[in-house]
């Protein structure tokens, strides 16, 4: 009876020992997932971690790999994360902008507009509800900046 108990506890200790040495894939996956950003997907097979998903920049991508590598039981990391491509800022040409600003401002007779190097300057006065409409219309014309010097009535 005593020997059986001894054997059983030995078996339990051995299991814990081996499990401690090399955690199961599922456990590694859980542990890594808990430390990674929410947009990073984690898959583990035989100690090899594969990271997928889209992150904001290269630093985030590198950081995710460091986190995965630091986890106990991880043998290697395949970093398949992609970096979000950032759309460059498009600024309209002055000629196009001048024409489009004139079209947009036509129905706001109390506003004087000028355009130079992509900057739309607004002078004069306007009431609040019209200001929002005018700003909305000008903002879609791809100006570099809207310099609003209007007096709001």
């Amino acid at each position: 009876m005593k020997t059986t108990k001894l054997f059983m506890s030995a078996a339990v200790v051995a299991t814990l020992f081996f499990a401690g040495c090399s955690p199961k894939d599922g456990d590694i996956e859980k542990a890594v997932k808990a430390k990674e950003a929410s947009e990073v997907s984690v898959a583990v097979a035989k100690g090899e971690v594969t990271l997928t998903g889209e992150v904001a920049d290269d630093a985030e991508k590198a950081k995710a790999e460091v986190i995965a590598k630091a986890e106990k039981g991880v043998k290697s990391v395949v970093n398949n994360l992609t970096v979000k491509s950032v759309m460059p800022v498009v600024i309209a040409e002055d000629a196009t902008l001048i024409k489009n600003v004139a079209d947009a401002a036509k129905d706001f007779p109390t506003v004087q507009t000028s355009v130079k190097d992509g900057v739309v300057t607004l002078k004069g006065e306007i009431n609040k509800s019209s200001l929002v409409k005018l700003m909305q219309q000008l903002s879609v014309l791809k100006p570099k900046k809207i310099d609003n010097q209007l007096t709001v009535k």
Binding site: K128, L131, S139, K142, K145, Q149, L150
Partner: peptide, 19 residues
Amino acid sequence: WDVYNQIDPNFAAGDLVLN
């Protein structure tokens, strides 16, 4: 645009293009 107006009343700062 309401949120924008709360941060920058009357859109006077000239530091945002909300397209």
